[in-house]
Each structure stands twice: as structure tokens, then as C-alpha cells.
């Protein structure tokens, strides 16, 4: 077994309204920044024990499916690196 760092990035599905993102983008506009498509997500970092990177990625993905992300409205991405 080895330790792996997994980073789970959770984002709202594209069709789901992101009120926080809209308000934040609005203020950036007022401040003079010409940005668009601002979406706010969650960044979750964790360390997990696994026999290889593949298993670590699988475990992190399971955690994301079961708890970290809400499949009804969110998608997620997992990145794993050895520690």
C-alpha cells in the first residue's frame, strides 16, 4: 500500500444555475474586468492509501459519487498523484 494525494474538483453541471458565480461575475464587471462564464466549484484534497494510482483514483471517485458531489446537480473530476 502507498499513499496518494487525490484532488477532487466539484463543479455544477453546465445547465444548473450558479447564483454565486453570476453575482461574482457581475462585481468583476463593475470593477472593469471583461470576464465571462464564471462558475464556482469546490476543491477537495485528501490523502488515501491504495495499492496503486488506479485504485486510489477509483476510491476518490467513489467518495465523490457517494458524498463529495451531488450527482443530481454536480459533476466532478479526480486527479491523483503519488506522495
Amino acid at each position: 500500500m502507498a499513499a496518494f494525494e487525490a484532488v477532487v474538483t466539484v463543479t455544477l453541471k453546465p445547465e444548473i444555475l450558479d447564483p454565486a458565480g453570476e453575482a461574482t461575475q457581475g462585481v468583476l464587471h463593475h470593477m472593469g474586468y471583461a470576464v465571462r462564464d464564471l462558475r464556482i466549484g469546490r476543491h477537495i484534497r485528501l490523502t488515501v492509501e491504495a495499492k496503486d494510482a488506479e485504485e486510489a483514483e477509483g476510491l476518490a471517485g467513489q467518495m465523490a459519487e457517494e458524498l463529495l458531489a451531488n450527482p443530481v446537480m454536480e459533476t466532478f473530476r479526480v486527479e491523483v498523484s503519488a506522495l
Binding site: 447564483p19 454565486a20 453575482a23 461574482t24 462585481v27 463593475h30 464556482i40
Partner: peptide
């Protein structure tokens, strides 16, 4: 203010 989005007070502080 601004729904407390991003961090509470952060967006209003730029008004």
C-alpha cells in the same frame, strides 16, 4: 449583500 456569495462581505467591499 450579494447573497453572501464567494465570501460574505467580499463583493460588497468593492462597491
Amino acid at each position: 449583500s450579494y447573497g453572501d456569495y464567494l465570501r460574505s462581505g467580499a463583493l460588497a467591499a468593492k462597491a
